[in-house]
Simulated assay, not measured.
Amino acid sequence: MAKTLHITNGDSFTAVLEKLNISGDIITWREMLCEGKTSNDVGSETFWRQRYEYLNRAYKITKDTFINKTLKEYRNLCNQKTQDEIVLWFEYDLFCQVNMIAMLSWLKKNRSDASIAIVCAGNEDASDKLYALTDLTQESLKNLYKNRVYLTKDDIEYGDYIWQLYCENNPIRLQNAIKQNKSQLSYLSKAMEAHIHRFPSLKNGLNELENKMLQKSIQQTLNSKEEIVHEMLKDQGVYGFGDIQFSKMATTLRPLFKSFNPVKLTKTGVNVAEAIENYYPIIRNDKEYLGGTPKYSFLFVEDGAQLLKL
């Protein structure tokens, strides 16, 4: 039996890892826990039911797809019980970091016997650029693996603690907890700060990324929804979102656009972008969750970067 179990952040990197000739079994974590409602008991019936309901509603993911892609791979993970070492291959961004702490929470409960290490891509050179695992050469990846970070019990406890807070309906507690990060999870605080910026702004009812989408639509000459999505993918900081997430965002904001071809805002869209009008009463949706928190139950106050409970 293999001595090492590798858990990757997605199919793209799994394909890369398979070519690296690093020994061990590979499990692909196929989830996007940064979106939709989450419960802290990773892998429970409630957890998977909530995840399926969200993915089906938001992205029309069918039950067959969910079972064959996500649940079968999760069951495969549950059957991996013999490896001495478990290596998590994740990245610096919010998308990856939320999945990573959910994984740490699960491992703490189910594989406390194993040694846990992380290979986390991000700052890889003297530049400000943050790298994805798939951006790196085979040599760089092997070097990252060689220098993988072995997590202490305290690191795992902290990752689990942040996951529990992420799944609570109290993001103010989460915001305070990430300021105390003394763990080896070095990208977690920045990612969670980005999460806090996903609550609607007090100024106009849209969050950081939604406002960025409107600003790009004003400042750049864009000719299609696909071009807006492409621009958001290029300039999203530490969110790590994919095209389907930005496409969904554009659809949500569609009433503020006069046209997508070319991209042009309505008068209300321009007023919202300039914080002359507040879009909160119109965009509010009680089914939208960020972790364990209804998205529209808190406002983000830019002055002081604080959350305000409604």
Score class of each variant (00 low, 15 high):
Q180V: 11
G43Q: 03
S186H: 08
C96W: 05
Y92T: 04
P200R: 10
Y59M: 10
L94C: 06
R57S: 15
A191T: 04
L94A: 06
T82K: 13
F300A: 08
L222N: 01
A117Y: 07
E274V: 01
I86G: 02
T251S: 12
W163A: 00
E288N: 10
N40C: 12
I22V: 14
K295H: 06
T82M: 11
Q97N: 07
M192P: 02
T82F: 10
D84A: 13
K212I: 09
G292F: 07
Y187M: 07
N211D: 08
N99R: 06
T266K: 06
I7W: 00
F66D: 08
A191N: 04
H230Y: 12
L233I: 15
E227H: 07
W163C: 01
E91I: 10
G291Q: 10
N110A: 02
L185C: 07
D286E: 15
L17A: 05
I196F: 01
E210C: 09
I101F: 00
T28P: 02
F47Y: 15
R51W: 11
V119K: 01
K3M: 14
E73P: 03
K109H: 10
Q220K: 13
D135T: 09
I244T: 13
L33Y: 10
E208C: 14
H6Q: 05
I67P: 00
A177S: 14
G292I: 09
V87L: 04
T134C: 06
M232H: 09
Y187K: 05
L299K: 12
S127T: 15
Q50N: 15
Y131H: 13
E18A: 15
K182H: 15
A2I: 06
E157F: 08
K264P: 00
S259C: 03
K129N: 15
P294D: 05
L307T: 06
I178M: 09
S39D: 15
D155P: 04
G242L: 08
D135Q: 08
N278S: 11
L133S: 05
K309P: 12
V238G: 04
L130D: 10
S140Y: 00
E73A: 13
D286W: 04
E35P: 03
L256M: 09
R173S: 14
V270T: 11
D41H: 12
M213L: 15
P294T: 10
L55T: 12
T38K: 12
R51M: 11
M1I: 08
L5N: 04
R198G: 03
K63S: 08
S140N: 11
R198T: 01
E208G: 05
Y166F: 15
S105M: 00
V270K: 13
L185P: 01
T266C: 07
L130I: 09
S183K: 00
L77D: 01
N204D: 06
W163R: 02
K295F: 13
A305T: 05
D154V: 09
Q175H: 03
V301M: 07
M32L: 14
F90W: 06
K212Q: 15
F90V: 05
A250V: 13
E226V: 13
I172C: 01
A177V: 02
I172L: 12
G237Q: 06
N271W: 11
W106M: 00
V272F: 09
G269Y: 08
P171G: 09
S127D: 14
